[in-house]
Nucleic acid binder design. Structure first.
Length: 696
RNA sequence: GGGGCGGUAGCUCAGUUGGUUAGAGCAGGGGACUCAUAAUCCCUUGGUCGCGGGUUCGAGUCCUGCCCGCCCUACCA
């Protein structure tokens, strides 16, 4: 990293892994995205030209299936996901320069370009592959889309790659009594042509490129070199037979598509291309230019794609290679994997309804180092860290001194503070180095040391005593000038982590925080804006409510073909109690004609929103197909979030007499089970049903 | 099955190329203060550094065996 030695601005292109357009963002994803955002903001604050290029990853079998489940086109589905993703990221104060999609013209073009280069280099070969297909849809089935019994131990509900009970690995074709996740029918075996990239040809290059400590962390190098590079690299299968959602491979008569992992990283370049077009820049100035640093942030689960295939592709096509790949570990919550049943599988959207994003940003920063270690989100720790560090130590500096000088402002010259400001200014470089090396936890530690030195100063200077003696106004002003400047210095150092907080601090001093350099000189002789609370403590009840809400959102029906191991397992013994039945005994017998008077229909929720004044109600728009849309007020507010309802198929009473309610007319009823309150479980239709169909 | 990483005070972690009585923050205990979102400040109690061998004048730090935990495992190991 020679460029770090001199002070000229660097040109830095940063990417985070592309979120897969198949589901919502959760707090596990956010480890990486917050990490990336902090690093980018840091570079910008330091005055470097840094762009954060991002996109949704949109191709593959999983997307096809999800689109089908939602009964919309893939394009519609990924558009919706992209909107949701970006909304969540904004909520966490993540700021990118461009957000693209791998399903774009730009990406198609660059895929073609790289494909030609691979062909020209003679790296592409075609071979027959025997694999499983869905008997109904004709789609090839990835291993994760085939379930059956482990051929070794006969454990049921295992995926097509290995058995999580006995650990045995096998091929999907070896499964006993296999079932396709798409149709639920037994898959059929077939042989098709696949295209492979012979990356073994680049073995020497990769051996060299993966040297420890250069572009990769040491553990990553060890892993790649010890495992993959110690033997000839296998040819990489980069194609999938039609039907597939993705880009067709040229000259294959639309019969072959690029595998999603082929075009996903190319999305980094394509999204840059789009940004260039919007900003009057040339792509080659960013991807074919030795003056540019390229930094990828990604999780350890996708190392091999980014550290073997990706450099091989870039090298062959003559693009810049990554300067550095920053690979992080996973998130555990309270020491365990995130769990849907324990309510620790927390979606970004859910978090934001209960807690300030600044908390999570700071907590992750305080935990993150440059290595692949997993980090644990322990909620006791979370609250202690945020309250103690940010509120009790940092914010306290301002809240205990600002009001004394509200009327008179800061001293005209910076008083003698015994070297505190200068000492903290000098610490800036070390803090910056830690940010640079992604050692955020070290940076946070150093910053908190500054707060720990500033608070005793205030303690000894006793502004509250000076305040009582009118002859000591000047001394009081000086003490507060020092305290507030030490506070502001800390806020600048924290700005990459807490951008919104930094903004408020800027407003307090009437001097926006825009550069790291501002930490090096104190502000004097200026008035202050009125001090307002900058950050409040974490409320335990909010955490509890968030966890509770995360549990509830998982009590939603799952399409039959996705039901998990436990429900397919033959060893499960059903032990449902009769509690529910006792609580609400069966109604009097009715005739079939009685039942027929109630017209139950499948409907799709096309809109869902909170009714501000209503305690229990959500306002839903239900579509019965075509122009037939009903407005229904449903008492499910405690159990469901509007956003998770949209797109879902439900069962409604369609011929119920409309009812005038306080907030409008309700034109029907949504069927749900449960005792009420948060115990509400909507009835769903299995995939295949369409809006308007009657329930018999 | 294969592999990666880790096991240091109650908790979260630091411990540089092996070197004097093993550190920090939080929590706990005692005191001070009352400006501050019951915050802050001072003092203080906690550790056979997972277990056993070995190398060395000297090991948390290197080697080795074992135990435990977490994680990863591309059409794959």
């Amino acid at each position: 990293m020679e460029s770090r030695k001199n002070n000229s601005p660097r040109k830095i292109l940063v990417t985070a892994a592309l979120p897969y357009a198949n589901g919502p963002i959760h707090i596990g994803h956010l480890v990486e995205y917050i990490q990336t955002d902090i690093w980018v903001r840091f570079q910008k604050l330091r005055g470097h030209q840094c762009i954060f290029i991002w996109a949704d990853d949109t191709h593959g079998t999983a997307i096809m299936k999800s689109a089908r489940d939602h009964q919309c086109s893939e394009e519609e589905f990924i558009a919706r996901m992209s909107t949701e993703h970006q909304r969540d990221f904004r909520g966490f104060q993540i700021e990118w320069d461009h957000y693209g999609s791998t399903h774009s013209d730009a990406n198609r073009l660059i895929c073609h370009e790289i494909w030609s280069a691979l062909n020209r280099a003679g790296l592409v070969v075609k071979r027959q592959v025997v694999e499983l297909f869905d008997a109904e849809t004709g789609e090839a089935l990835p291993d994760r889309f085939v379930k059956g019994k482990c051929p070794k131990c006969l454990s049921p509900g295992q995926y097509g790659d290995n058995c999580d009970k006995c650990g045995h690995t096998y091929r999907a074709t070896d499964l006993v009594e296999p079932i396709s996740a798409l149709s639920g029918k037994p898959p059929v075996e077939g042989a098709t042509d696949h295209f492979f990239v012979r990356i073994e040809e680049l073995h020497d290059f990769l051996e060299d490129w993966t040297a420890p400590g250069v572009h990769l962390q040491e553990e990553v190098s060890n892993y790649l070199r010890g495992h993959f590079l110690s033997e000839p690299l296998r040819d990489w299968d980069v194609s999938r037979p039609a039907p597939y959602f993705g880009f067709t491979i040229p000259e294959t008569d639309n019969q072959h598509y690029w595998y999603v992992w082929f075009d996903a990283p190319i999305g980094y370049i394509a999204s840059t291309k789009e940004w260039c077009d919007l900003n009057n820049q040339k792509l080659d100035d960013w991807w074919r230019n030795d003056d540019v640093e390229i930094h990828h942030f990604l999780g350890k689960d996708i190392q091999y794609f980014h550290c073997l295939f990706w450099p091989a592709m870039l090298k062959t096509a003559g693009f810049n290679l990554p300067t550095r790949e920053h690979i992080h570990g996973f998130l555990t919550v309270n020491g365990e994997k995130m769990s849907k049943t324990k309510g620790t599988f927390i979606k970004a959207e859910t978090y934001l309804r209960y807690l300030d994003p600044a908390y999570l940003r700071y907590f992750y920063a305080a935990k993150l180092g440059s290595r692949l270690d997993d980090i644990d989100l322990n909620f006791n720790d979370f609250k202690a860290k945020v309250d103690t560090d940010l509120v009790n130590k940092v914010v306290n500096l301002a809240s205990r001194s600002a009001k004394f000088v509200e009327a008179i402002g800061l001293s005209p010259t910076y008083p003698d503070d015994g070297g505190l400001f200068a000492q903290a200014a000098a610490a800036g470089e070390r803090i910056a180095e830690h940010y640079e090396e992604c050692e955020f936890s070290q940076a946070m530690r150093l910053i908190m040391e500054l707060a720990d030195r500033a608070n005793p100063f205030v303690e000894n200077a006793q502004p509250w005593v000076l305040h009582k003696d009118p002859s000591k106004v000047q001394e009081l002003q000086e003490v507060c000038t020092i305290a507030l400047n030490l506070f502001r210095q800390i806020a600048i150092y924290l700005a990459p982590v807490l951008p919104e907080f930094a903004e408020r601090v800027g407003a307090l001093f009437n001097d926006p925080i825009v550069s790291w350099k501002q930490s090096q000189s104190p502000l004097v002789g200026r008035s202050l804006s009125k001090f307002t609370h900058l950050l409040k403590r974490v409320e335990l009840k909010d955490i509890e409510a968030m966890i509770e809400a995360s549990k509830q959102t998982e009590a939603t029906p799952t399409p039959a073909h996705l039901i998990d191991d436990a429900t397919q397992s033959t060893t499960v013994e059903w032990q449902d109690s009769d509690e529910a039945l006792q609580a609400e005994p069966l109604a009097a017998e009715c005739s079939i004609d009685d039942f027929a008077r109630v017209d139950l229909r499948v409907a799709r929720i096309i809109e869902a929103e909170h009714v501000p004044e209503a305690k229990k109600l959500l306002k839903l728009k239900l579509s019965l197909g075509g122009d037939n849309v009903r407005t229904v007020f449903a008492g499910i507010k405690a159990a469901y979030e509007p956003a998770q309802l949209v797109g879902r198929l439900v069962v409604m009473v369609a011929n119920l007499k409309p009812r005038e309610m306080k907030f409008g007319t309700s034109e029907g009823m949504v069927c749900a089970a449960g005792s009420g309150g948060s115990e509400v479980y909507l009835l769903a239709a299995d995939s295949g049903a369409v809006p308007g169909q009657r329930v018999h």
